[in-house]
Design a protein around this nucleic acid. Structure first.
Lengths: 224, 224
DNA sequence: ACAAAAGTGTTGACTTTACACCCATGG
DNA sequence: CCATGGGTGTAAAGTCAACACTTTTGT
């Protein structure tokens, strides 16, 4: 391949992560403020240019750590974004990842070399975003909504286990719906995403809830 | 962004399409033989380098046409592939697309400038493929299996309409399962992917089958 | 013993599966 | 009128939705 051919010279790859959390029933996403051109001063999702010596997911995790200090997340690739002018500088294709984590468990660096003011934004109060990150965020949220009912993506949010009532609040926040407690419990157990740990949560003035944990491997269910 | 930084200079994007067909109950995929290095003489999926002036899907369709003469397919992006050494020449990230078409309706160019011997291969008789195309094909088939039960991707295979018995053969070929005729019909109609056309197919020595067509818009179904 | 939230079970509605007969057409 | 494959109905099993009472704990 001829790298000098102007049809495809000067291309690059972005790895972008929409990292979500849920705080008191509110779904939030991590945004950072850019300190460089293009889009200087604009809010964006965490991410940046993929290096030549790393796989896509590695790059997304490195960018996440560099720009926010966050490590130990599980992320899932969900879509590539490649409109011709999505970056004003050169031709960049973005590979989007989604993940979710407990914001209280991470030490968020609010200032780094290239970013400032890293913070969690409620998904219904998102400021204008640079690049095509509004589109990426929109698709990421849809992907998150799909993933929570068929993968163990929420394992990163509850690494030490979770009770069914906690899960219900989380699902209600992410899916923006209310569920019947009894039916939610049955459905959750049927989805086969979690397993019993034979422990109960802390005593808080009422009957303690059983603690479950997300399984490590989830198997796909067939529709046909 | 500094294009000279060796951490991320000389990157490029592949757009790769796994184009399927079904012939007499056998699922096949379109492969071409490379005439250039790298992987000269190897079989690969259709695709190539994305141009700077086209979106991802445009690029995939252009490559498909250039290398096989095929036009008028609907394709769906399903995943990006970005292992560091997936291309031996330079760092390339591939964006994978999947589509399906009736092989009898297309005029397949078996020879082009860069490829030769384009042909349909049964998915259980795939030769060794160049690049990481075996992985891409594997994932593409899984994606196709998902798509046929929840999108109108089969519209490209049956642009003029289809009968339920024909559909059943197609589903059985792609999912590699057998279904009960009566229940298949009910499920198919319930999936809400097709609609009645009030016509019947050709007369072939038995009761003619009703012709349905795939809807243009499909709405997602919720699990919760 | 009371407040607060967790846990559980049943009924009716709906959906899915299994299965057998009749129908329309061409030859 | 027969061979071929298309179309339909029903009963039993299973799943889902709606709904109210009992349990465990801390105070």
């Amino acid at each position: 391949m001829d790298v000098k051919n102007k049809l495809y010279k000067n291309q690059g790859i972005h790895v972008i992560t929409a990292l979500f959390t849920v705080e008191q029933g509110v779904t939030k996403v991590l945004l950072i403020k850019r300190k460089n051109e293009p889009f200087l001063g604009d809010w964006v999702l965490t991410g940046g240019a993929l290096y030549n010596n790393e796989d896509l997911e590695e790059g997304a995790l490195r960018e996440l750590e560099e720009k926010t200090g966050i490590t130990g997340v599980e992320i899932k690739q969900f879509k590539a974004f490649g409109k011709v002018h999505r970056s004003p500088i050169m031709r960049m294709v973005a590979v989007g990842f989604v993940g979710i984590i407990d914001s209280k468990r991470v030490n968020l660096l609010r200032e780094t070399k290239n970013t400032s003011n890293a913070d969690w934004f409620p998904i219904n109060k998102i400021p204008p975003l640079g690049f095509d990150h509004e589109e990426i965020l929109h698709d990421a949220l849809l992907e998150l909504q799909k993933q929570i009912v068929k993968s163990n993506i929420l394992k990163s949010l509850f690494p030490d286990g979770v009770t069914i009532p906690e899960l219900q609040k989380t699902y209600e926040a992410i899916l923006n719906k209310k569920f019947d407690r009894r039916n939610f419990r049955k459905k959750m157990l049927n989805l086969d995403l979690i397993e019993d740990t034979n422990t109960s949560d802390k005593f808080v003035g009422h009957k303690p809830a059983k603690v479950y944990k997300f399984k490590n491997k989830i198997e796909d269910k067939d529709i046909f």
